[in-house]
Design a binder for these strands. Sequence first.
DNA 1: GTCTATAGCAAGATAGAC
DNA 2: GTCTATCTTGCTATAGAC
Lengths: 202, 202
Amino acid sequence: MRLFRERGYARTTMRAIAQEAGVAVGNAYYYFGSKDHLIQEFYADTQIEHRAAAAPVLTREREFAARLAGVLHAGIDVLTPYHSFAASFFKTAAEPTSPMSPFSAESSAPREASIALFGEVLEGSTARVDAELRPALPELLWLAYMGVVLYWVHDRSPEQIRTRKLIDGAVPLVDRLVGLSRLRVLRPVTRQVLDLIRTLRH
Amino acid sequence: MRLFRERGYARTTMRAIAQEAGVAVGNAYYYFGSKDHLIQEFYADTQIEHRAAAAPVLTREREFAARLAGVLHAGIDVLTPYHSFAASFFKTAAEPTSPMSPFSAESSAPREASIALFGEVLEGSTARVDAELRPALPELLWLAYMGVVLYWVHDRSPEQIRTRKLIDGAVPLVDRLVGLSRLRVLRPVTRQVLDLIRTLRH
DNA sequence: GTCTATAGCAAGATAGAC
DNA sequence: GTCTATCTTGCTATAGAC
């Protein structure tokens, strides 16, 4: 991880990693199927850090919007030191067949943990949510978080300030939408959306 | 392109491409800066095919929803023969710094053409759209199309039927949203969304 | 300016000995 | 489990033909 941060993904060779770890290249491949597989460590580490960084907000805030914004900002806080590294390895994670995809079976442990974190955002809040929407919401919030991360990876503004603005701009909209989901007039739309999501899931 | 389709991106070597084209490797690099640059041809080709495949729908239909669904389906129709190839090279396109990104300057010609196609979807339709939203809409529709393509690349259902369901499910929602944008009560939300988008643009 | 042939580097990955 | 040696392939460099 240190070499990746210092030199970027592509410019860190397996030879260098093996040498730094004091093992032979072949031995590195005995433990990690490919260079890409080293990235799983990154997911696991940052997920744990994310949970820790989100803890203060989750104990302090009760408002749904404040909790969601806090957790999203905490996620970006944790990722910030890895911004250039993330940009350089993102291609690997984006590949559909790659085990490094955040949607893959290999990534399910950190993914489930992350979805649970967004479950906490909802459960600990005073938000009143449509009963049908509620069970699907943690995963939807996680998906929105993936969208934020996608934007962040591409964000070349200084200190990724645009990503911060995205969070601050989008959270009130999400909050409003979630609140509206309880209106009887919007019930059909809510159901339509949920049906669509169910169809699209794997 | 044939070799890519047959063997996938990674397993098609520059040596094989050069041989098949009857030129030396060095000559292939004379015309294409890197293996990745060959993908630009793919963008350019499929964009032109997309425009052609969309033509019947655009002359026949006047309803916004029908036009949008038709153009989205036409896009997937054109891409379908390349599904496994697209999955194998997608990592390259997804990299933020890559000239192969659909958002990059190098891809601006096919991108602009594609956005113009979604402009046609709107202009030729009977849809009545909020005046502030209207100029931003073609690019937003293109962005939605990129979302559909993103889903399609990951779609492993037989014949990517889920992507078809995504289009059929999402289009009525988009249609309804666009229609609602004219309601006075929703004006602030519309403006909020447009402000956010303006902030996030590069 | 366009092209060939060939040699060679760098780095991810693998084979097979121990 | 661990090593060394080797393979593969994207890419570069060079020398030269026309």
